[in-house]
Amino acid sequence: APRKVEMRRDPVLGFGFVAGSEKPVVVRSVTPGGPSEGKLIPGDQIVMINDEPVSAAPRERVIDLVRSCKESILLTVIQP
């Protein structure tokens, strides 16, 4: 079942996760003590960023979407 995860941007750590460059977009790592800790799990597949589906989106679009979130971000993720 999809999970909705909302995180506030940390001034130092950002959102505190690293996503892979393949499709679908998969969470590779979560920064300890960062905003994503306890919310995202490595292996989570990101299916939506805010209200935009990203399963088939180019990597550049995913990066732009994350960067455009100055304060908070809403991710919809699934464990494949």
Score class of each variant (00 low, 15 high):
residue 1 A to I: 15
residue 1 A to G: 06
residue 1 A to Y: 07
residue 1 A to H: 15
residue 1 A to Q: 02
residue 1 A to V: 05
residue 1 A to C: 14
residue 1 A to L: 08
residue 2 P to I: 15
residue 2 P to R: 13
residue 2 P to M: 15
residue 3 R to Q: 05
residue 3 R to I: 08
residue 3 R to E: 03
residue 3 R to G: 02
residue 5 V to W: 04
residue 5 V to E: 06
residue 5 V to D: 00
residue 5 V to T: 04
residue 5 V to P: 01
residue 6 E to L: 13
residue 6 E to A: 09
residue 6 E to Q: 12
residue 7 M to W: 00
residue 7 M to K: 00
residue 7 M to F: 09
residue 7 M to Q: 00
residue 7 M to Y: 01
residue 7 M to D: 00
residue 8 R to H: 10
residue 8 R to K: 15
residue 8 R to F: 15
residue 8 R to D: 15
residue 8 R to A: 14
residue 9 R to H: 05
residue 9 R to E: 04
residue 9 R to V: 05
residue 9 R to W: 09
residue 10 D to I: 04
residue 10 D to G: 03
residue 10 D to S: 08
residue 11 P to S: 07
residue 11 P to C: 05
residue 12 V to S: 14
residue 12 V to A: 14
residue 12 V to Q: 14
residue 12 V to H: 15
residue 13 L to W: 11
residue 14 G to H: 04
residue 14 G to Q: 06
residue 14 G to W: 00
residue 15 F to H: 01
residue 15 F to P: 01
residue 15 F to Y: 11
residue 15 F to Q: 02
residue 15 F to M: 04
residue 15 F to N: 01
residue 15 F to A: 02
residue 16 G to I: 00
residue 16 G to K: 01
residue 16 G to P: 00
residue 16 G to M: 00
residue 17 F to N: 00
residue 17 F to S: 01
residue 17 F to V: 02
residue 18 V to K: 08
residue 18 V to T: 09
residue 18 V to H: 11
residue 18 V to F: 05
residue 18 V to E: 13
residue 19 A to I: 15
residue 19 A to L: 15
residue 19 A to P: 12
residue 20 G to A: 11
residue 20 G to D: 15
residue 20 G to E: 15
residue 20 G to C: 08
residue 20 G to N: 09
residue 20 G to T: 10
residue 20 G to L: 08
residue 21 S to M: 12
residue 21 S to I: 05
residue 22 E to M: 05
residue 22 E to T: 06
residue 22 E to C: 09
residue 23 K to A: 08
residue 23 K to T: 12
residue 24 P to E: 03
residue 24 P to T: 03
residue 25 V to G: 03
residue 25 V to E: 01
residue 25 V to K: 01
residue 26 V to T: 14
residue 26 V to E: 12
residue 26 V to C: 10
residue 26 V to Y: 07
residue 26 V to Q: 13
residue 27 V to K: 01
residue 27 V to I: 10
residue 28 R to M: 10
residue 28 R to H: 09
residue 28 R to F: 07
residue 28 R to C: 07
residue 29 S to G: 10
residue 29 S to F: 06
residue 30 V to W: 02
residue 30 V to Y: 03
residue 30 V to C: 08
residue 31 T to L: 06
residue 31 T to V: 10
residue 31 T to P: 03
residue 32 P to K: 12
residue 32 P to H: 11
residue 32 P to V: 11
residue 32 P to Q: 13
residue 32 P to R: 11
residue 33 G to T: 06
residue 33 G to L: 08
residue 34 G to F: 02
residue 34 G to H: 03
residue 35 P to D: 02
residue 35 P to H: 02
residue 35 P to M: 04
residue 36 S to F: 02
residue 36 S to R: 00
residue 36 S to I: 00
residue 37 E to G: 06
residue 37 E to I: 07
residue 37 E to S: 11
residue 37 E to N: 08
residue 37 E to Y: 11
residue 37 E to C: 11
residue 38 G to P: 03
residue 38 G to R: 07
residue 39 K to Y: 10
residue 39 K to R: 12
residue 39 K to N: 09
residue 39 K to S: 08
residue 39 K to Q: 12
residue 39 K to C: 12
residue 39 K to M: 11
residue 39 K to G: 05
residue 39 K to E: 07
residue 40 L to D: 00
residue 40 L to V: 06
residue 40 L to W: 00
residue 41 I to V: 13
residue 41 I to K: 14
residue 41 I to D: 10
residue 41 I to L: 15
residue 41 I to M: 15
residue 42 P to Q: 11
residue 42 P to R: 07
residue 42 P to K: 08
residue 42 P to D: 10
residue 43 G to T: 03
residue 43 G to E: 06
residue 43 G to M: 06
residue 44 D to V: 01
residue 44 D to T: 03
residue 44 D to Q: 04
residue 44 D to N: 03
residue 45 Q to R: 12
residue 45 Q to M: 09
residue 45 Q to L: 07
residue 46 I to V: 13
residue 46 I to N: 02
residue 46 I to L: 11
residue 46 I to T: 08
residue 47 V to T: 13
residue 47 V to Q: 11
residue 47 V to D: 09
residue 47 V to Y: 13
residue 47 V to M: 12
residue 47 V to N: 06
residue 47 V to E: 09
residue 48 M to L: 09
residue 48 M to K: 11
residue 48 M to W: 07
residue 48 M to H: 07
residue 48 M to T: 13
residue 49 I to M: 03
residue 49 I to L: 08
residue 49 I to D: 01
residue 49 I to P: 00
residue 49 I to S: 00
residue 49 I to G: 01
residue 50 N to W: 06
residue 50 N to Q: 08
residue 50 N to S: 06
residue 50 N to I: 02
residue 50 N to Y: 06
residue 50 N to T: 02
residue 51 D to T: 09
residue 51 D to F: 06
residue 51 D to R: 10
residue 52 E to V: 14
residue 52 E to D: 09
residue 52 E to G: 04
residue 52 E to L: 12
residue 53 P to G: 09
residue 53 P to I: 15
residue 53 P to C: 12
residue 54 V to D: 00
residue 54 V to F: 02
residue 54 V to G: 00
residue 54 V to I: 08
residue 57 A to R: 07
residue 58 P to H: 09
residue 58 P to D: 10
residue 59 R to L: 14
residue 59 R to A: 12
residue 60 E to G: 13
residue 60 E to F: 06
residue 60 E to Q: 14
residue 60 E to H: 12
residue 60 E to V: 07
residue 61 R to E: 10
residue 61 R to P: 03
residue 61 R to L: 10
residue 61 R to Y: 13
residue 62 V to K: 00
residue 62 V to P: 01
residue 62 V to D: 01
residue 62 V to M: 04
residue 63 I to C: 08
residue 64 D to G: 12
residue 64 D to W: 05
residue 64 D to A: 09
residue 64 D to H: 11
residue 64 D to L: 03
residue 64 D to N: 10
residue 64 D to T: 08
residue 64 D to Q: 13
residue 64 D to Y: 05
residue 65 L to N: 04
residue 65 L to D: 03
residue 65 L to W: 05
residue 66 V to H: 02
residue 66 V to L: 15
residue 66 V to C: 09
residue 66 V to M: 14
residue 66 V to Q: 03
residue 66 V to N: 02
residue 66 V to Y: 04
residue 67 R to D: 13
residue 67 R to C: 10
residue 67 R to N: 15
residue 68 S to V: 06
residue 68 S to A: 12
residue 68 S to L: 09
residue 69 C to S: 13
residue 70 K to S: 11
residue 70 K to V: 06
residue 72 S to Q: 14
residue 72 S to T: 13
residue 72 S to P: 04
residue 73 I to H: 01
residue 73 I to M: 13
residue 73 I to W: 00
residue 73 I to N: 04
residue 73 I to E: 03
residue 73 I to A: 06
residue 73 I to Q: 03
residue 74 L to A: 14
residue 74 L to C: 15
residue 74 L to Q: 15
residue 74 L to Y: 15
residue 75 L to P: 06
residue 75 L to N: 02
residue 75 L to G: 03
residue 75 L to Y: 02
residue 75 L to S: 03
residue 75 L to C: 05
residue 76 T to M: 07
residue 76 T to P: 02
residue 76 T to I: 06
residue 77 V to G: 02
residue 77 V to H: 02
residue 77 V to M: 03
residue 78 I to R: 14
residue 78 I to V: 14
residue 78 I to S: 15
residue 79 Q to I: 03
residue 79 Q to L: 06
residue 79 Q to T: 15
residue 79 Q to R: 15
residue 80 P to C: 06
residue 80 P to F: 04
residue 80 P to Y: 04
